[in-house]
Design a protein around this nucleic acid. Structure first.
Lengths: 129, 129
DNA sequence: ATGGACCTTCCAGTACGGGGGAAGGTCAAG
DNA sequence: CTTGACCTTCCCCCGTACTGGAAGGTCCAT
């Protein structure tokens, strides 16, 4: 199948598939005599996997690591666990930071809502920040 | 004071200050006869404000909006309130998404932790994803 | 043979907040 | 008078995951 068909079957664009190939996520495709990329239908499975990895918050570089291990004939289970664990730790930290930021902003906004604007002194930029 | 001194006093780098000037966050500095930027110590106040804005999760473009209003002689209070409100709404959505993602990943990792790696079939990339 | 839909490569740009480094000018100390 | 630290402008680079577009080749139907 041609790149456009594959893209539609996998729910993405031809442009993105060329990008994935360039990034090493897809193997270099076979070519027809005229130079068109020629894919087997199984390529959809790999692209779906990439999408699932992204849905799990992995970067393309991380998905590629898993794919490389698998392409090497090994089971990437251990590495996948590590990646998920570290993603989880990052996520916890990220969430904590956002919650703290939320707290800070809530306070700032509450101040901004109660103080009279007229009392702002002209020599500072903004009393709320 | 020269740009390096100001940078150190404000806890940033000369490079960043030139960048801020270019982005309109700092007014164009006075120059010495030889072309060096020459700042008054009050410049630190403005840079601190920029840092507080960033700490509140505002982008430099948003901080610049506030600064522009203030530089225009007005009190930016209303605009600051709007910015904080909208930042708060974004934050809530962002947190909700991360929490949902955390849930997904937790489930994936729990599966990855309980299944025997040996039972992975070689025809799929990874059974956990 | 011609039109349109598809494909190819390559180059550039998006948003964000800077950083790196070159080529050259300036200033103060020794 | 030279050395070293600082300054100037300039342009390109980082990561992330693409997207847009130009210039040209191919395939199929009419």
């Amino acid at each position: 199948m041609r790149i456009g068909e594959l893209a539609e079957a996998a729910g993405t664009t031809a442009k993105t598939l060329r990008f994935y190939e360039e990034q090493g996520l897809l193997p270099e495709a076979e070519r027809t005599p005229s130079g068109y990329r020629d894919y087997t239908p199984e390529a959809v499975v790999r692209i779906d996997f990439i999408h699932r990895g992204q849905a799990a918050g992995l970067t393309l570089a991380q998905v590629r690591q898993i794919l490389d291990i698998r392409d090497d004939g090994q089971a990437p289970c251990g590495h996948v666990q590590d990646l998920l664990d570290s993603r989880l730790a990052d996520l916890d930290e990220q969430i904590a930071q956002l919650v703290a930021l939320r707290e800070t902003i809530t306070q700032l906004r509450d101040q901004a809502a109660t103080v009279e604007p007229e009392t702002c002194s002209p020599d500072q930029v903004c009393r709320y920040l």
